[in-house]
């Protein structure tokens, strides 16, 4: 067998991570548009909110695959981010009925906006780094077999 399950997990992670990178780029662009007045906060929030849970789910899925494949180190690398996601969703603005994190009435507060911007950039960085790590992991696991 020239193709182990761990290699497969890394391939899936690579593909998923590429999507995550797109998500976070989309977030950052949206917030930047908000900051520069190109977009209405209601529209922005309406387009961003439905993407929040899929992003978290995709990230969780990658880690479940790592768990199954026994890639403990990769899993550990991702645990803080999972924890952050849970914390972030728990502390979302009060009284939101739909899914999502962003409330159009307080997103324009400059504190909230800059926090969201920062979050977007940091996540983009994390996903990019993990993309290269997954690439390395995939190659090394392929070589090992």
């Amino acid at each position: 067998m020239g193709f182990s399950f761990s290699a497969a997990s890394y391939i899936v992670a690579l593909i998923g991570d590429a999507f995550l990178i797109f998500f976070s780029i989309f977030h950052t662009i949206s917030f930047d548009e908000l900051k520069t007045d190109y977009k209405n906060p209601i529209d922005s929030c309406n387009s961003l909110n439905p993407l929040v849970l899929p992003e978290y789910a995709l990230h969780l899925l990658i880690n479940i695959i790592f768990l199954i494949a026994g890639e403990w180190f990769s899993l550990c690398l991702n645990l803080p981010l999972i924890g952050y996601h849970i914390w972030r969703y728990k502390n979302r603005p009060q009284g939101m009925s739909g899914p999502g994190l962003y409330d159009p009435t307080n997103i324009m507060n400059s504190d909230t906006l800059s926090k969201c911007m920062k979050e977007g950039w940091i996540k983009l960085g994390v996903y990019l780094l993990s993309f290269f790590y997954y690439l390395y992991g995939m190659i090394s696991s392929l070589i090992a077999t």
């Binding site: 209405n40 906060p41 009435t105 324009m108 507060n109 400059s110 504190d111």
Partner: peptide, 17 residues
């Protein structure tokens, strides 16, 4: 200077509007 937070009854449509 820039505006940080607004108080009152309104909807903030962009950073200063």
């Amino acid at each position: 200077l820039s505006i940080h937070t607004f108080h009152g009854n309104f909807f903030v449509r962009s950073t200063d509007l």
